[in-house]
């Protein structure tokens, strides 16, 4: 699988990172090299091998349904780049097929 610049452009969009064509070119080369290296995993026979997501086997870690005090609106908004009343304000939202 050879990585193309168009694929990298799509990945940059999915990652919400703006990139110039020049940057995309460089990124295509670097990611390609890393993915080529990762292809060495194809040497292994993984037939019947289960994937490991959690290395320490644990299950059913839960808390009781008890309400705790919230941190307060001032702490919530203390780092807000654009505070408007008790809201975080952001530029106009345009729906691009994601969201819900």
């Amino acid at each position: 699988m050879k990585l193309t610049r168009e694929e990298v452009r799509e990945v940059a969009y999915l990652s919400r990172i703006e990139m110039t064509d020049e940057e995309l070119d460089r990124m295509t080369g670097q990611l390609g090299a890393i993915l080529d290296y990762a292809d060495m995993l194809n040497e292994l026979d993984l037939e019947g091998v289960e994937p490991t997501s959690h290395v320490i086997p644990m299950k059913n870690v839960m808390r009781e349904d008890v309400v705790k005090e919230s941190c307060g609106v001032e702490k919530a908004l203390m780092n807000a780049p654009d505070r408007f009343g008790d809201f975080f304000r952001v530029p106009k939202v345009i729906d691009e097929g994601e969201g819900h």
């Binding site: 808390r63 008890v66 309400v67 705790k68 005090e69 919230s70 941190c71 307060g72 609106v73 919530a76 908004l77 009343g85 008790d86 809201f87 975080f88």
Partner: peptide, 19 residues
Amino acid sequence: GCSTGFAAAPNHHVCPVCL
């Protein structure tokens, strides 16, 4: 542990986790 109840004002039922 934030409350699911109705909050009169925005961003009052929040904590570092749900933020």
